[in-house]
Simulated assay, not measured.
Amino acid sequence: MAAAGFTVSSASATAQATWTVSPGGPFTAHSGNTQLAVPNAVLTCTDSDADGTLKSGSGLDGAGIGDIDNLTFTNCSVAGILFTVDTSSALPWKLNVTGPDPNNANRVLGSISGIVAKIADPDGICTATFAGPSGPTAPGTVTGYYDNGTDQLVIQDGNLTAHNANCLGIINNGDHAAFTGNYDVTPAQSITLD
């Protein structure tokens, strides 16, 4: 998951703001630890890998500046119970840049949109779909930043919500799900305001 997906309010970031991405093109991203936290539980995955494509050049619109074409999560568990995570139904997801980080010159803020993901334990005792607040097929969004200094895409939260939850009260319909993860992006990208 490389490159951009963010939210920020900044006087210099207007609707007309454009961006430069270098080198752009195909990328991969890896995280050694991601978490999806609901009020009663935390789903932890020790490996997550993504690949996609970024636009390249200057004068680029921040909305849809890139795509995530594939995203996998492995070795995922809640309280020692293994889970699978299926992200395939809504791919590709969109990478969006919304503005520079007013607190860190190396970072650009943004979002990843279009998210629908399903989790299940091997026996089907606990299942849930995470999407936008309005329903299980309404794509959700996560927010964070891309750091040009560390080449990391950092996800910090978003509006993911649990739907179709059948999970013995551990996950409930309407639960806010906070997704967090630090993804190392290869090749290193530079995303800057024009």
Rank of each mutant, 00 (worst) to 15 (best):
T74G: 07
S77W: 02
V78K: 01
V78A: 00
V78H: 01
V78Q: 00
A79M: 15
G80V: 01
G80K: 00
G80C: 02
L82E: 15
F83M: 02
V85Y: 00
V85R: 01
D86S: 04
S89G: 09
S89F: 09
S89Y: 07
S89P: 06
A90H: 04
L91W: 09
L91C: 06
L91N: 06
L91A: 08
P92V: 08
P92F: 06
P92W: 06
W93R: 07
W93A: 03
K94S: 15
K94T: 14
N96I: 07
V97H: 08
V97C: 12
T98R: 11
T98V: 08
G99M: 06
P100R: 05
D101H: 07
P102Y: 11
P102G: 09
N103K: 13
N103A: 13
N103S: 14
N104K: 12
N104G: 06
N104F: 12
A105L: 12
A105Y: 08
A105G: 08
N106I: 06
N106T: 11
R107D: 13
R107M: 07
L109D: 14
L109T: 10
L109P: 02
L109Y: 10
G110T: 05
S111P: 08
I112M: 12
I112N: 04
S113Q: 13
G114N: 03
V116D: 03
V116H: 04
V116A: 03
A117E: 12
A117P: 03
K118E: 14
K118Y: 05
K118P: 05
A120W: 07
A120Q: 14
D121L: 01
P122I: 05
P122Q: 07
P122M: 09
P122T: 05
D123P: 04
D123Q: 15
D123I: 11
G124V: 06
G124W: 09
G124C: 11
C126R: 07
C126P: 09
